[in-house]
C-alpha cells in the first residue's frame, strides 16, 4: 500500500509536468490548428538556459528561473513568426513537416553548442522532504505541485476572465469573425505561443530538477507524451489537458512499477491509439462537425 501510494504521488508529480506541457500543445492547437512538434524541444532549451544562467554565469536561482521563462516565451514567438506564420494558409502536411524541422533544428543547435554527452546539473530546488507516516514526499515533488497548481489557476483565470483571454477564445472559435470584431489575430496567436512556451519553460525547470541530467534530446519524449496527454483530455480543451496530463503521469508511473519499465512507453502510446479509435475528441473535447 505504501509502495502504491508512493508510486501514485510520483505519478501525480510527473503528470503535473506533462499537464504543463500539454497546456502549450492544446492552446496552440486550439488557435493555430497545428501540432507544434518543437514544443517538446522548448523544454530542452529551457533546461539548458537554466543551466547556463545558474552554473556558468552564476545568477541566483530565482533570477535564473525568470530568465529561463522569458527566454522560452521569446523563442516561442520567434519560431511562430519565422516558420509557422508564412504557412498559415498552407496544407497541414507542410506545417507539420516544418514543425518537425523546427524540432530538429533546436536539437541540432544544442548538440552543436553543448555536445552530445549528458551534463549533470544539480537541482536548484532546495526544499526538505515531508514525511507522512511511512510515505516520503520529496521537496521537488512539493514544489512541482505548487508551481503547476499556480500556473493552472492563473491560466484558467486569464483565459476566462480577461479581455486578452476572451480574444484568444474568440480567435480559436472563428478567426475571420474575431478579426471583424476588432481582435488582432496575429498578436493573439503570438501571445498564445508566448504563454505556451513560457509554460514549457516552467516545465523544463521542473523536469530538470527531477532528472538532473542535460541532453539535447531530453525534450523529445516528454513532449510526445504530453501530446498524448493533450489528445487524451481532448485537444483544444484547457481543463482536458490538465486532466489528461495527470492521468497519463499516474498510468505511466503505475505501469512502470507493476508491469514493466520497458513496456511503459508502449502502454502510454497504446492509450493514445485506443483513445483515438474510441473517442477521437478526447475525454473533455468537443465534437467538431466538418463542413464541406
Amino acid at each position: 500500500m505504501v509502495r502504491f501510494l508512493e508510486q501514485f504521488i510520483n505519478g501525480l508529480s510527473v503528470g503535473s509536468v506533462y499537464a504543463l506541457i500539454a497546456l502549450g500543445y492544446t492552446m496552440v492547437y486550439g488557435i493555430a490548428r497545428m501540432i507544434n512538434f518543437a514544443h517538446g524541444d522548448i523544454i530542452m532549451v529551457g533546461a539548458y538556459v537554466l543551466y547556463v544562467c545558474k552554473s556558468i554565469i552564476g545568477l541566483p536561482s530565482i533570477v535564473s528561473v525568470i530568465v529561463t521563462i522569458v527566454f522560452c516565451s521569446l523563442l516561442g514567438i520567434t519560431i511562430e513568426k519565422i516558420a509557422y506564420k508564412p504557412l498559415r494558409k498552407a496544407p497541414s502536411l507542410a506545417v507539420l513537416i516544418t514543425a518537425i524541422g523546427m524540432s530538429f533544428l533546436l536539437q541540432a543547435l544544442s548538440l552543436l553548442i553543448f555536445g552530445a554527452n549528458p551534463i549533470t546539473f544539480p537541482s536548484v530546488i532546495k526544499v526538505s522532504p515531508i514525511y507522512i507516516g511511512s510515505i516520503t514526499i520529496s521537496g521537488i515533488t512539493i514544489i512541482t505541485f505548487v508551481v503547476t497548481f499556480i500556473c493552472m489557476i492563473g491560466l484558467t483565470y486569464f483565459v476566462n476572465n480577461t479581455k486578452a483571454g476572451s480574444a484568444m477564445r474568440a480567435a480559436s472559435e472563428d478567426k475571420p469573425a474575431a478579426e471583424l470584431m476588432g481582435i488582432n489575430v496575429n498578436r493573439t496567436i503570438s501571445m498564445v505561443f508566448a504563454i505556451g512556451s513560457a509554460l514549457a519553460g516552467v516545465a523544463g525547470f521542473l523536469y530538470i530538477s527531477q532528472y538532473q541530467s542535460l541532453m539535447p534530446t531530453l525534450g523529445a519524449l516528454p513532449g510526445i507524451k504530453a501530446f498524448v496527454a493533450a489528445v487524451l483530455g481532448g485537444i483544444g480543451s484547457i481543463p482536458g489537458a490538465m486532466l489528461g496530463g495527470i492521468m497519463l503521469g499516474v498510468i505511466e508511473s503505475l505501469s512502470k512499477a507493476y508491469i514493466s519499465t520497458q513496456l511503459a512507453d508502449a502502454i502510454v502510446f497504446g492509450i493514445l491509439v485506443i483513445v483515438l479509435i474510441v473517442k477521437p475528441s478526447g475525454l473533455l473535447g468537443k465534437n467538431s462537425i466538418e463542413k464541406v
Partner: peptide, 16 residues
C-alpha cells in the same frame, strides 16, 4: 542534423 532540419524548413517555406 542541422542540415536536415534546415532542408525541411526551407523546402516547406518555399511552398508557402
Amino acid at each position: 542534423m542541422l542540415l536536415y532540419a534546415i532542408v525541411l524548413i526551407i523546402m516547406m517555406l518555399l511552398r508557402s
